[in-house]
């Protein structure tokens, strides 16, 4: 008797757990030959709400971790991803990549995670400043994470687009709610499993699959989401909704498969600048050198 293959159930990732969508709905993802690949959760706006609640709850402790510690956690993600390389190559191929592109994509994803892991304890020094002022004050500006960031993953990429947008958000101490690519969602959920088995605390990253147009307006209107990140096209549709709490919108368009599609500004853009005026004394008749 031949063995029955056990197929994976692709569930969503909220608060460090893999629940099914609250709505109980699903949709079928097909491969290039229109053959069904998997049944995937069709998340609802209530899932968006639950994900934001989880992300908010996780924000405090994640943003207060030391930069060095965050760097270690990000590096750990790369280690875990390396171990599951073959699984990703297989999934990418199933979703239409050629084997060589698939290998290129997973390798680039791992390297990009290590790249942002390296930035964790360095962007603050480069992005902060001591400012010249005309009074006896020590005036300095530092970067602080924005909070809960919604990420609308690039639609035409299953893994590298998501990794490219997520990693700088995490490196900067934000927590994230990700809407996975609607037609290429498999790697997003498998990547959530990688996050789950690395040292990323539950709730820091939450991944939802489903119809992007059904969830993006809820995410954009949500008062507890501080910023939205995505490609120009996907953010264009939700600008009006995001006005209510003056949400920050950042659109990054790039060929994510290009090894140059990374950089410091991906981190520093998703930071708020806090400037502090600290009174200083003139001691011994000497004026301040700041």
């Amino acid at each position: 008797m031949s063995r029955l293959e056990i197929l994976k159930t692709y569930k969503i990732y909220i608060g460090g757990q893999f629940p099914r969508t609250e709505s109980g709905r699903y949709y079928v993802v097909n491969d290039q030959q229109d053959q069904p690949l998997a049944n995937v959760c069709l998340s609802s706006r209530k899932d968006v709400r639950n994900a934001v609640v989880a992300a908010r709850k996780a924000f405090g402790s994640w943003s207060e971790k030391t930069a060095f510690n965050r760097s270690q956690v990000l590096y750990r993600i790369a280690e875990m991803l390396e171990g599951r390389r073959d699984q990703f190559i297989q999934e990418l191929t199933k979703q239409g990549s050629s084997p060589s592109t698939a290998i290129q994509e997973i390798d680039l994803a791992i390297d990009r995670i290590v790249y942002y892991a390296g930035w964790c304890d360095k962007y603050q020094q480069i992005g902060s400043s001591v400012n010249p002022v005309a009074s006896s004050h020590f005036n300095f500006s530092v970067l602080e994470p924005m909070g809960v960031v919604g990420i609308i993953a690039p639609q035409n990429s299953s893994l590298i687009g998501l990794v490219s947008l997520l990693m700088p958000v995490l490196a900067g101490g934000n927590t994230a709610v990700i809407l996975a690519s609607e037609n290429l969602p498999l790697c997003a959920i498998t990547f959530a499993e990688v996050l789950h088995s690395s040292d990323v605390p539950g709730g820091v990253v939450n991944v939802l699959t489903g119809k992007t147009t059904e969830m993006d307006t809820t995410l954009a209107a949500h008062m507890d989401v501080n910023a939205l990140v995505g490609e120009q096209q996907s953010l264009g549709c939700v600008q009006v909704e995001s006005v209510e709490n003056l949400k920050r919108l950042f659109s990054f368009d790039a060929d994510w498969m290009n090894s140059n599609a990374q950089g410091l500004h991906f981190i520093t853009d998703i930071q708020e600048v806090k400037t502090t005026w600290h009174p200083i004394e003139n001691i011994g008749g000497a004026s301040s050198s700041y």
Binding site: V48, R49, T218, A221, M223, D224
Partner: peptide, 9 residues
């Protein structure tokens, strides 16, 4: 309002 709220407000 139909909009999910934030504890910040």
């Amino acid at each position: 309002t139909g909009i999910y709220q934030s504890a910040d407000y």
